[in-house]
Design a protein around this nucleic acid. Structure first.
Length: 215
DNA sequence: CACCAGGCAAGTA
DNA sequence: TACTTGCATGGT
């Protein structure tokens, strides 16, 4: 896509990575559901301080203790349950080996992840791309907002429709999808927060769509 | 003070 | 199938 090149000219290589290990990436993917990443970082930090960012520790933790540790990420009761669901699946099906679980082929792993209660399409694809390094495009709120705003696809189209749009126009390439997603998140943060910022968005003029005007 | 942030599942009609 | 609602903290 030409949008990619336009964004690349603006940002250059980002080499974005939302975690230091596959487990940290997976935990972060669940914690960031409808939540600012800055709050997720606080929760991850608490988990590390408590030496609890490991499969064994997470299995051992009670719901209440886990919920307290991740409090800063919001929805802590829901997310504690979802983390437990993920870890329980890992324990029972793979003896706690995340590596083994992530080693499968993309389609099987995606189906498995989606079968876990609390892991929807975006969470599953984040784990697939960033933890398992499988070539799947991650669609998030920024992606839908930015593409619909610039007249590429209506906002109400499904997750899979947005995902297909990227994947039929681009090669299956992990670093490419990583870079593209990172750039879209940055566009969202850098230019979609207010109208004055919007005016300098690198995508303005795409398909003739002008920046938003005041009023 | 109000509003929003890198979703998802469960309930309702 | 297609809405609607609950979940919750921290930043602006």
């Amino acid at each position: 896509m030409r949008i990619y090149r336009r964004l690349y000219r603006h940002y250059g290589d980002l080499k974005w990575w939302p975690g230091e290990s596959p487990l940290e990436v997976s935990v972060g993917a669940i914690l960031t559901q409808n939540t600012a990443w800055s709050n997720v970082e606080k929760a991850i930090t608490r988990l590390k301080e408590a030496r609890s960012l490991s499969v064994k520790a997470l299995v051992r933790l009670s719901h209440g203790r886990l919920a307290r540790l991740i409090k800063a990420a919001g929805y802590f009761n829901v997310k504690a349950r979802r983390l437990k669901n993920f870890i329980s699946f890992l324990e029972s099906r793979y003896g706690g080996s995340l590596k083994k679980m992530l080693h499968q082929d993309l389609d099987r792993l995606r189906t498995e992840l989606l079968s876990i209660n609390g892991t929807g399409p975006e969470t599953a694809d984040s784990i697939l791309l960033y933890a398992a390094e499988k070539p799947i495009f991650v669609v998030d709120a920024y992606t839908k907002r930015i593409l619909s705003r610039h007249g590429v696809m209506p906002y109400e189209k499904s997750y899979e429709e947005f995902q297909k749009l990227f994947m039929v126009h681009l090669p299956l390439d992990v670093p490419l999808y990583n870079q593209y997603h990172a750039m879209l998140v940055n566009v969202g943060k850098d230019f979609c927060r207010s109208r004055p910022l919007c005016a300098s968005c690198p995508l303005n003029g795409w398909r003739g769509v002008p920046p938003l005007k005041a009023g």
